[in-house]
Structures are given as structure tokens and as C-alpha cells.
């Protein structure tokens, strides 16, 4: 879609990398680390949902698999987290492939595909909540060992930079993919599946590749989350919150764009935090769930006024207005 995005990616990553050098507030660093983890999960969602048009409501299935794999491989199998990370991503990708195989072979699309993914995520949540191996309802604690060799850092900025490296990798992956044959086929089947088939696109194969890749990226976000908080339970790892965040961020930021998920995640979570603080001060205490109300309002605003997300809005406001934008232009 866009031309080469290498320079903007480089600039964005440098700006984000410099952030903790200027601002030393622990709260801010914590927030930014969390926001980037959500952005990474959203970048995974965007590969399948934004470029491929297959809206999943259940990316928690991949996030949670990544998170639990990261935790369990360390706790139950004594694996080093640096080794556990790629395994967690592969396991998440495998779950993505399996769900995709079942859903896409049955030719599920649109709302049906969304519901099936949601159902899978819920089943995983219930299983993880019941099974002793995953720590059941008590959850899973990863022992604290502050060593770089253990992917736990005394200096919290190092972990932030690690997460940023993953986000940067996902940005480059997305930009490269958008310019590749696979990307062109993915967008083609999003726009019109029959027309894509007529042009020789094996739509099942392309969709399976997309959901596998998508799940692998979102599983990496889950793995990083597990390593950040060193505690997991089913409601965190497989909870609907991450499915919602992962799909809202690209919709608010710009579906099927390289930067949409990152911008969307920062905007959504930032506004959520700010409204929590502002209303907390106003009412002299926390207002639980206020950030969800903000998310809802943002989603409605995005769908109504910025169907191409913040990036599309930016395009329209800043750049020269182009004549006859999209639509059925009458001759």
C-alpha cells in the first residue's frame, strides 16, 4: 500500500528508544512497556485482520498460549526464558494454524469466524483455569531472579528496550509483508475472495499462513507479558481484554497499515490512563472500568468519523486534500 516504510520505522523506534532516557518516572516506563506489549499483540492481529480482513475476536488464545508457554517452560521444565521465547512463539503459531485450519476449511467468514475464535479463546481460558498443570485458579508464579541471562533486569529500561526490539521487528515484518507477493494476495482476498481465486490465489493457504504468522507475533507479546509481570492466571492470559485491545488498537490507529496498531495502542491506553487519573482526582478515588468506557467512545468515534483510523485522519487533515476520495465516484 504505502511505499517503503523503512525511514519512518527507524525514526519511530529511535524516538521510543530515547524516551526512558529523558523521562525517568517509573510509572511512565511501566505504562510504556505495557503499551508496547499490547501494540505487539495488536500488530499480530493486524496481519490477519487488517491486511487479510479476517476479524478475530479471540487473539487471547494466542496471547495466552505465548504467556503460559513462557511461564510453564520455565517453571515446570526449567528452560531458560531466552530459549523459551521462540518456543512460545512457535506454540502460539501452531495454535493459530490449528484454529485457522478448522475455521477456514469450513469456509467461516466475517461474524462466524469472529465467533469461533472467541469461543476458542474462552475454552482455553476455562481449561487453564481448571488444569493443575497451568496452576489452575491460583495462577502461575515465575520465580524472581534478576539476571539478564534470565530475561529479568534490575534496570527496567532494559526490558522496555527488549519489548521495543520486538515491536520494531514486527514493524519491519509488516512493512516487508505489505510489499511482497504474499501481502498482495492477502489484501486481494480481503477485498474480494472470488476475484482472488480467479487470479490463481490459493485463498485457504494464504489465510492459513496469515493466521499462523499473526498468532506467532501475538504469542510473543504474551511471552513478554509473562516475563514482565512474572505472574499469570487464566483471566489475564486468556482473558477477553487482550482480544479487545488487540483489535481495537488497529481499528483506532488504522487497519491494514504498518503503524496503525502502534499508534492505536498508544492512543487507546494513553487516553484510558489519563481518564482514569482525571476522573480519579475528580471523584476522590478510582472509577473502575472508566478506561473501558473511553475505549467504547473511541471505537464509536473511529468507526463514525475516521474509518481509516488515526492515520487516515492524519492523512486527510495534514496532507493536501485529494479530489474524489474512494467511493463510487460518478463520472
Amino acid at each position: 500500500m504505502t511505499g517503503s516504510a523503512r525511514l519512518p520505522i527507524l525514526i519511530a523506534v529511535i524516538v521510543l528508544a530515547l524516551l526512558p532516557l529523558g523521562a525517568t518516572s517509573n510509572t511512565l516506563l511501566n505504562f510504556m512497556t505495557f503499551a508496547l506489549i499490547v501494540a505487539l499483540a495488536a500488530q499480530g492481529w493486524n496481519l490477519l485482520g487488517g491486511y487479510g480482513g479476517q476479524f478475530s475476536f479471540g487473539h487471547a488464545a494466542f496471547f495466552g498460549t505465548g504467556a503460559y508457554a513462557m511461564g510453564l517452560l520455565q517453571v515446570r521444565f526449567g528452560l531458560n526464558p531466552w530459549a523459551a521465547m521462540p518456543v512460545a512463539m512457535l506454540l502460539g503459531a501452531a495454535v493459530g494454524w490449528a484454529i485457522g485450519f478448522l475455521a477456514f476449511r469450513a469456509r467461516l467468514r466475517g461474524a462466524y469466524f469472529a465467533l469461533v475464535t472467541l469461543a476458542f479463546a474462552e475454552v482455553f481460558r476455562i481449561l487453564a483455569n481448571a488444569w493443575a498443570f497451568t496452576g489452575a485458579a491460583a495462577g502461575l508464579l515465575v520465580p524472581l531472579k534478576l539476571q539478564a541471562a534470565n530475561m529479568q533486569f534490575e534496570d527496567k529500561r532494559l526490558f522496555y528496550w527488549l519489548v521495543l526490539a520486538f515491536v520494531a521487528g514486527a514493524l519491519v515484518l509488516t512493512a516487508e509483508l505489505a510489499r511482497s507477493r504474499f501481502g498482495a494476495r492477502l489484501v486481494a482476498l480481503r477485498e474480494n475472495e472470488d476475484a482472488a481465486r480467479a487470479l490463481g490465489v490459493d485463498t485457504l493457504r494464504v489465510k492459513l499462513a496469515a493466521i499462523t504468522l499473526s498468532a506467532g507475533v501475538t504469542a510473543a507479546a504474551g511471552g513478554l507479558y509473562a516475563q514482565k509481570s512474572l505472574y499469570l492466571d487464566a483471566a489475564i492470559a486468556y482473558g477477553p481484554w487482550i482480544s479487545v485491545d488487540a483489535l481495537l488498537a488497529p481499528i483506532v490507529g488504522g487497519l491494514g497499515t504498518v503503524f496503525g496498531p502502534l499508534i492505536g495502542a498508544l492512543a487507546l491506553l494513553g487516553l484510558g490512563e489519563l481518564s482514569k487519573m482525571a476522573l480519579g482526582n475528580l471523584f476522590g478515588g478510582a472509577v473502575p472500568g472508566i478506561d473501558l468506557i473511553v475505549f467504547g467512545i473511541l471505537l464509536i468515534l473511529a468507526v463514525a468519523f475516521a474509518p481509516r483510523g488515526l492515520l487516515g485522519l492524519f492523512d486527510r487533515l495534514i496532507r493536501r486534500p485529494r479530489p474524489a476520495e474512494g467511493g463510487e465516484a460518478t463520472p
Binding site: 507477493r181 498482495a184 494476495r185 480481503r190 477485498e191 474480494n192 487470479l199 490463481g200 490465489v201
Partner: peptide
Amino acid sequence: VQPFAGLSVRENIAVGAYL
């Protein structure tokens, strides 16, 4: 006719060319 609306004319044709 079923054009891929989100793509340019060139990119539309390229989907066929990629075969």
C-alpha cells in the same frame, strides 16, 4: 466487475501477475 477497491489499478493487475 470485482476490483480490489483498496488497491491501485497497477496493484490490482499485479495480483494476477504474481501468479
